[in-house]
Amino acid sequence: MGNRLNGKVAIVTGGNRGIGLAIAERLADEDAVVAVGDLLDRRSAEAGKPGKVSFLPLDVTDEASIRAFVDEVLERFGRIDILVNNAGMVIHKSIDDQTAEDWDKLMAVNLRGPFLMAKYVVPEMRRVGSGTIVNIGSVEGYMVNPWHTAYAATKAGVHGLTLGLAVDLGPDGIRCNTVCPGWIDTDLNRAYVEMHPDRSLIERELSYLHPAGRIGAPKEIANAVLWLVSDESSFVSGEMISVDGARTKKIPLPAVLDEEYRSKLTEKQA
C-alpha cells in the first residue's frame, strides 16, 4: 500500500468482480477514492475497501445512466481524475450463428460504452487540466480465438479509440492507454475451464501458451493499470500494453516440435 494516488478520484466500470474489482482495490490501496460503476448485484456491494470504494449503479449501454453516474460521482467527490473502462462481455458464436442483436450488444458494451464514458468524463478532466484514461482491451484486438469475430472487432475498436483519444486530448493534459490482458484467472475463465472433463489438462495447455509458464492473475492487470494512471507513466500515452506472459510474442509450433520447450516449462512449474 502507498499514496501514489492520494487526492485522486477514480472511476472503474464493470468493477463488481474479477479484473475490475482487482483494479478498484489496487487504486484504493494507493489512496484513490474509487467509484465502481456496474449493473450491481447488491450481495457484493459490501466488497472492496470500506470508505475508499463506492459501488454505484451504471449501465454503460445507456447514455442516460452514464450521465447520471458521472453526475453522482461529481456530487459525491467533487472531481474525476481517472477513468478505467473495464466493463465488457464476450459472445462465443460463429459468424453464421451471430445475430445482428448479438453484434449490437457487444458493440454497445465493449465499444460504445467506453466512448460514452469518455465523452462525459473528459469535460471534468479538461476543467482541472489533467486526467488519465485506461481502456481494458484484449490481446484479441490483434489475434483472435475461434468464434470471437464480434468480440475481436470490439476490442480492435477499443484500441483505435485509445489512439484517437490520446491524440485529441493530449493538448488538454489528458493521457489515454490500453491494457491488453492475456488469459487471466477470473471467475468467468475458471468456469469455462471447469466445464471441461479434464480440468488439469486444460490448465496445463493454457500454461504452455504463455512463455511465462502460467496464466495471469487479476492483480497483475491491476498493477499495470496503476502504473498507467500514476505519475510514473507521465509521458506514456496512446499505447496498447499487453499483460500476457509473452503469449502474443511466441510463434506457435506443432506440439511435436514444441516438445522441448514444453518440457522446460513443465520443469519450471514443478
Rank of each mutant, 00 (worst) to 15 (best):
I133H: 07
N86K: 06
A212I: 15
W227V: 08
M195S: 13
N189G: 08
S65H: 04
A255L: 07
A10Q: 04
T178Y: 00
Y142S: 07
E46W: 06
N16R: 11
P254S: 15
G238R: 06
D102V: 13
G131K: 11
L83A: 08
G245M: 02
G131L: 06
V134I: 14
Y151L: 13
G141Y: 00
Y208C: 00
L116T: 08
M89G: 10
E101L: 05
S234H: 11
G48I: 08
I174W: 01
D96N: 11
E124D: 12
Y151S: 09
G137Q: 04
G141A: 15
A156V: 08
V70F: 03
G113L: 07
V243Q: 03
V243K: 03
S242K: 05
G51A: 08
F55Q: 07
G164P: 00
D231Q: 09
P254H: 13
M1F: 05
G7D: 12
G7P: 06
S44H: 13
D96W: 14
D41R: 11
L58T: 02
G160V: 11
N6C: 10
S54F: 01
V36G: 00
L56M: 12
G216Q: 10
R127C: 07
A150M: 02
V167Q: 12
L226M: 04
G20V: 08
S44M: 10
G141L: 00
K268H: 06
S94A: 14
L209T: 15
V109E: 02
V33F: 05
V90W: 02
D62R: 06
L40P: 02
M107V: 15
V229T: 13
E30M: 11
E75S: 09
A47E: 06
T61V: 04
I174N: 02
V256N: 04
N145T: 13
E220C: 07
G141V: 05
K155T: 13
R204G: 00
D102F: 10
V139G: 01
K8Y: 06
R43E: 14
D187R: 09
T248W: 07
M1E: 10
V167H: 10
V243M: 04
L27V: 11
V9M: 08
E194N: 15
S233T: 04
E140T: 08
A212W: 01
D258G: 08
S200L: 09
R76V: 10
A68Y: 01
P254C: 15
F77P: 00
L188W: 09
D96G: 09
I23W: 02
D102K: 13
A212K: 05
A68M: 02
D81E: 12
P123V: 09
